[in-house]
Design a protein around this nucleic acid. Sequence first.
DNA 1: CCGCAATCTTGCGCGCCACGCACTTTTTCT
DNA 2: AGAAAAAGTGCGTGGCGCGCAAGATTGCGG
Lengths: 200, 200
Amino acid sequence: MSGLRERKKQATREALSWAALRLSVERGVENVLVEDIANDAGVSPRTFNNYFASKYEAITWREFNRAMQIGDLLRARPEGESLWQGITESILAVYHAQMPEGERDPAPGWVEGVRRMTQNPQVIGEMLRGYQAVQNELAAAIGERLGTDDDLYPQIVAGAVLSAVRVVQSRWIAADPPVPFGPLLRTALRKLTEMQGESP
Amino acid sequence: MSGLRERKKQATREALSWAALRLSVERGVENVLVEDIANDAGVSPRTFNNYFASKYEAITWREFNRAMQIGDLLRARPEGESLWQGITESILAVYHAQMPEGERDPAPGWVEGVRRMTQNPQVIGEMLRGYQAVQNELAAAIGERLGTDDDLYPQIVAGAVLSAVRVVQSRWIAADPPVPFGPLLRTALRKLTEMQGESP
DNA sequence: CCGCAATCTTGCGCGCCACGCACTTTTTCT
DNA sequence: AGAAAAAGTGCGTGGCGCGCAAGATTGCGG
């Protein structure tokens, strides 16, 4: 289970993903070869494809991994809490962990690099693809919490929530001057529940 | 504006996209080369890339194009109508046009082919990427209709709506036995406005 | 502690793809 | 009709994703 083998694999995956992200942010995605990533991670180019199907998958894997936690966090929220409260706090827990007020090391130009990177069409496509899996995961957690057998509603909610998260992310990354993430997300999620309309 | 040149370009684009879709549905995406698509459209392989950046873009272009109309349809809805009514009818107008009860020619195995095709990771990624542009378009239309200067709310609404559309699409394509599209979509959009919660 | 089995890594090679460049063909404009 | 603009095409290149088989590493039972 947690043998040397597994730990090494995890470390390699982590190293590859990190290298892919760092290099892409530093020099721009189009100036990074799979070979560069593999070298940086100290592994053969062929091995890269044992872990990721494309460099874009490697780049987005960390974000994907982070977002996948949301479901578990939601499951761990207290019983009495409202669904929206639980969702909001779970998401904030995931993202605040990595981007609080004082970032660990907001290396000069890093945010700008991320901004440019997240405009690449293939990066965007890969990100969105990942969120589809996250949506399924979150929908499952929501379904459990609601204890409903209808599985359409959870998907709708999960989709709407994650869509809002994406909107907030793009706002946040583009914000100049920078703006705190938390309030932005709370506002967005509140608007979600305020969408009113005479049902047709 | 609408000279021979433009019309030919449009026809070529249409032919390429249609060939890409048809061949992919018939034989499976992985068994279709760009060369095949180009041949089928009566154009050189090199020309293919003057129109589409990848075969996945070609495959999803029709769906993308269809969805992009939603914004204009919404703008054309009557003044007094509620936002949700307008959105619902606009979306239905777009999709009902192509998939009413009696499909034009529900060629045997076509739906099954589409189902398999839409499970391909790269097709999924490309689809989602396209929906991002659709979301921006729809958000613009919603913003105009609401006459608000806040542009966060429209994005939230547009994102939630299109997310619901995607959920419905996946349900509809997977439904066995088949189920009509219209009611499914209306139900999904209604649930969207029924998402309640004590605001945190 | 050992050796076999399972698993991972790696080198090699192949088919495909995206695209730059330069040249030809077609359309447009006057 | 002829020049200018723009689209189509052929060729070449660098890169990618992955199948395959051989070599290295780890796990496990004796």
